[in-house]
Simulated assay, not measured.
Amino acid sequence: MSENVSATELASQYTAQVTADLERNVKEQERVSAEIAALNEQLAALQHDHSVLVSIRQAIDAAPAPASTGQPSDSVSVPAPRKKAAARSGTGKRTQPKKTASQPARPAEKPAGPKRAGKAEATSTAQPTLVDLVRHHLAEQKEPRSAAEIAAALGRSHPERTVKATVVRTTLEGLVAKTQAQRSKQGSSVFYTAADAPKQATPAQGEDQPASADA
């Protein structure tokens, strides 16, 4: 009898445990089902929002088309000021013939050219070459002169020019080579006279020897 009692107790215990497990299982299924339902609702809401956002973006992308077509209408008004500017430029062009009409008065300025040419000729004639200056200076002298004396005399008579004794000596030697001047020596000094100078001037060379020594 005791064995039968213990078996029934075990069976009742197993039955109670299984029943409790079944209840927990059912509750868990309900909980999961509720979560799935909530997730499905969230998914449906997200899908709805997605479709709404897509439609809004499409509307925004399509919006610039009418705006871009409206911009040319604003830019069409730009040529009006350009036409006015063109009209002003046209009036400016019309005023140009007046300037050209006054241009015939310019030929009166042409005589300035000959004046400048006259000035150029005057300056060219006013500044003879060093060869001419040396030749004329020798022609005016009655006695032989050294290169230093001639350079000093030309420097005094032409202060605007730089006359160097070495350049004058080279010029005198060139005149001697062309037989346009004569050269004579007195000791270590060299004197020059014009080619057509009289030979009587040579005795006076002794008097000028101290001057050449200073040169």
Rank of each mutant, 00 (worst) to 15 (best):
R183V: 05
R161A: 10
Q58I: 03
S51W: 02
D214F: 03
A117T: 15
N25Y: 08
E149N: 03
H136W: 08
T15W: 05
P107Q: 14
N40I: 06
H50M: 09
S73G: 13
R116Y: 05
A65C: 04
T19I: 06
A108F: 08
A7E: 07
A105T: 12
E143H: 03
K119W: 06
L39F: 13
Q186H: 09
L53V: 14
N40R: 13
V78E: 07
A38Y: 05
I56M: 12
S77W: 03
A147R: 00
G70Y: 02
D132T: 13
E140F: 04
V176E: 03
R88H: 08
S12Y: 05
A44E: 15
Q209P: 01
Q58C: 00
S188M: 09
A197M: 11
P203L: 11
L138T: 03
K119A: 09
A126R: 12
Q182F: 02
A195R: 02
H50S: 13
Q103P: 04
A213R: 11
I56H: 10
G187M: 07
T162D: 15
I56V: 11
A65T: 15
E41I: 10
A44D: 15
E28K: 14
E121Y: 06
T95A: 09
R82I: 13
L138C: 06
A215T: 04
R88I: 09
F191H: 02
L172A: 01
P210Q: 11
H137E: 15
P107D: 13
T100F: 10
D214R: 12
R88N: 10
V76A: 15
E23L: 10
P144M: 04
L130R: 14
A148W: 00
T100N: 11
L130W: 05
T202H: 12
K119R: 13
D74L: 14
M1R: 09
Q186I: 06
E207R: 08
T91W: 11
E3W: 07
F191N: 02
K110D: 07
T179H: 12
V54Q: 11
E173I: 02
V167H: 08
Q141A: 11
A165L: 00
K185P: 03
P79L: 07
G155K: 07
L172S: 01
V163R: 02
